[in-house]
Design a protein around this nucleic acid. Structure first.
Length: 591
RNA sequence: GCCCACGUAGCUCAUUUGGUAGAGCAAUGCUUUCGUAAAGCAUAGGUAACCAGUUCGACUCUGGUCGUGGGCUCCA
């Protein structure tokens, strides 16, 4: 049953032991926490007498090489758990003792320990036979960071060392090259280089300012999604960014979300707050009149500005901000309609993703985010409803043959959800879009409709975002296309370059004709060489560049350079306009 | 928020142990009027993130604040 992934995990975990052994040499009083294999490598958490500095990594790595050279065997011994506790107590390994006591409480009778040279570690294994099996040229320590013991921010912060480990130096090199490529595609770097967004210390952290170019991208995405949703039967609304705190007390968001909400402000006798979500606003819209079963499903949608006080260390570029715009919607329906609505939402998300160029399975996958019945603090208590909701979400995913995986303890407090996880070039995943099944809010807000018999019935709410947070989606797109946006999203679609001053006038005429057709066009009439201007349009990733001079004036044909190609296409202006408008209207991914 | 690292011109970066800043690109001006990845010359541009402290003297050392990055935790 062992496959290659398991094997490389053995290598990675064994390398973590070698790391720990090296750290022990440098710091005999070091305390050891845990050191698992992770994607691409491993880490180990230590409690050390002093904080590590980056230069330490080279020293530790040198010691690791040494241990590998010595080819120590990994020797396994199975011992009684009380014996193990005594052993690690004597060694003053508090963290290991804590792990052992947890194991003992769970009923474990004996545990295995592994020894290599003088380093003994509690570990269930398995391991390589000896340290010499590790190729010392295919491992590398990469970074130091802090990490809470047991992931609990109230516990001590330990020092974590991350490393990479592969079978061959070639694999390591390949991985490092990929990391470099990801760095080049980093939306923060490209966003700055191509002038999409900026940050200002004075405006504040987590509050990006979209430049004109970035704003074009946002406007196009918003127009697209609003039109698309209206086509599919959504009612698009505008509601306000401010609301009384009472609204969130009623929705029940307040106790759960208090930490991520901005503090309230008191104006006259009202206590107001910047909204962290639009749900309750849409509920109030729903409740503004008596609803009939005939109106359902009722889909209220909004490009909603939301404010969340994210911890400062969590902010990154456009991916995680404190003030963002969510393509949000709440679908009010009968329980019997929920399955079809969920399927339609997933279809919408698929269509949106395809339009943006993201590929299912390759670029994104589905996460069925489940609750935890035992955690009544985090989740609304109603076991039966949770079971039902989780079942229906799973059924929908299976029916649609969607590639998904399950994760517990990832649900919203009011119900389980399907998260669409987008993978970036660095291999990390972020939630792009989300679909949630809510049986809790309808109770709290008393969301009802009149059924066929004129009796009140409880509605179900599906929360969903189609194109996600616009900011985050722009971030994904920047990285996905490395700034070379599809034509319809390109801030500048066409650049016109007159060969010399003599041709500025006719070039302006061309520009005006394109402009009149709502094509985003600029003219580069700077006193620079043609080569220089071409170089600039390439740097700016402008899809089409038209060079205009004597030849074009005589032939009435345009010389068009298409992004990504060195060849020059010749085309009449009318044909070019027709062609490009067609590509824009179809949101073509090709030029 | 916590651990670590970082913050020098619009951008990318120099300034070897403390002696008050320099380059390329960009910008502006002039020359050139140019054919598909960077023409030439000149000019201007800095309270070294901010605030204290140590020192005869701080970009450099110390402390604090703000911001950025990588993690932890959290999440759209």
């Amino acid at each position: 049953m062992k496959n290659i992934i398991d094997k490389i995990e053995i290598l990675r975990h064994s390398t973590a032991h070698v790391l720990a052994a090296s750290v022990l040499k440098m710091f005999p009083e070091a305390k050891f926490a845990i050191g698992p294999a992770i994607a691409d490598g491993f880490y180990y958490d230590f409690d050390l007498p002093r904080t590590l500095i980056p230069e330490d990594l080279a020293l530790i790595e040198a010691e690791m090489q040494n241990i590998i050279n010595k080819n120590y065997p990994f020797e396994k011994a199975v011992i009684n758990i009380d014996e193990a506790i005594n052993l690690f107590k004597k060694a003053k390994q508090d963290y290991k003792v804590e792990i052992l006591e947890d194991l003992k409480n769970k009923g474990e009778k004996e545990v295995s320990i592994y020894q290599s040279d003088n380093f003994v570690d509690l570990c269930k294994g398995p391991h390589l036979d000896s340290t010499g099996e590790i190729n010392k040229k295919s491992i590398k320590l990469i970074k130091i960071s802090g990490a809470y013991w047991k992931g609990d921010e109230k516990r001590k912060m330990l020092q974590r060392i991350y490393g990479l480990a592969f079978y061959t130096p070639k694999d390591l090199k390949k991985h490092l090259a990929q990391m470099k490529e990801a760095e080049k595609r980093d939306h923060r770097k490209i966003g700055k280089d191509l002038d999409f967004f900026v940050f200002s210390d004075l405006v504040g952290k987590g509050l990006p300012l979209l430049t004109e170019k970035g704003s074009v991208i946002r406007r196009e995405l918003e127009r697209y999604i609003v039109d698309e949703e209206i086509k599919r039967g959504y009612q698009h609304v505008y509601s306000q960014d401010l609301a009384k705190v009472d609204l969130y007390r009623k929705s029940g968001h307040y106790p759960y979300y208090k930490k991520t909400m901005y503090p309230s402000m008191i104006v006259d006798d009202e206590e107001l707050i910047l909204r962290p979500m639009a749900c309750p606003h849409h509920f109030e819209l729903y409740k503004s009149k008596l609803r009939s079963y005939r109106e359902l499903p009722l889909r209220i949608a909004e490009i909603a500005k939301l404010y969340r006080y994210e911890k400062s260390g969590e902010l990154t570029g456009l991916i995680r901000v404190r003030d963002f715009c969510l393509a949000d919607s709440h679908i009010f329906c009968r329980e019997s309609q929920a399955e079809q609505e969920l399927k339609d939402v997933l279809q919408l998300i698929d269509d949106v993703s395809r339009t943006l160029g993201f590929k299912k399975n390759k670029d994104y996958r589905y996460r069925l985010s489940l609750g935890n019945r035992k955690d009544t603090k985090k989740y609304y208590k109603n076991d039966q409803a949770w079971d039902k909701a989780e079942k229906i979400l799973k059924k929908v995913l299976i029916d649609l043959k969607a590639p998904f995986y399950e994760e517990t303890d990832q649900a919203a407090f009011y119900g389980p959800k399907i998260d669409i996880q987008m993978k970036n070039f660095a291999g990390k995943e972020d939630t792009a879009f989300t679909v949630q099944y809510d049986f809790c809010m309808p109770d709290r807000f008393d969301l009802t409709y009149k059924n066929e018999k004129g009796k009140d019935e409880r509605a179900i709410v599906i929360h969903r975002s189609s194109i996600g947070s616009i900011e985050r989606t722009i971030g994904f797109l920047i990285e996905y296309y490395a700034g070379s946006f599809p034509l319809w999203l390109s801030p500048i679609q066409v650049a016109v370059i007159p060969v010399s001053d003599k041709f500025i006038k006719p070039a302006q005429n061309i520009m005006e004709k394109l402009f009149a057709e709502k094509i985003r066009v600029v003219i580069d009439d700077r006193n620079e060489s043609v080569g220089k201007k071409i170089s600039d349009t390439i740097k700016q990733k402008i899809p089409y560049t038209i060079v205009y001079g004597d030849k074009e004036a005589k032939s009435k044909n345009l010389a068009i350079r298409v992004r990504g190609s060195k060849e020059i296409k010749n085309q009449k202006l009318e044909d070019f306009i027709k062609n490009i408008k067609n590509l824009i209207d179809n949101k073509s991914l090709d030029l």
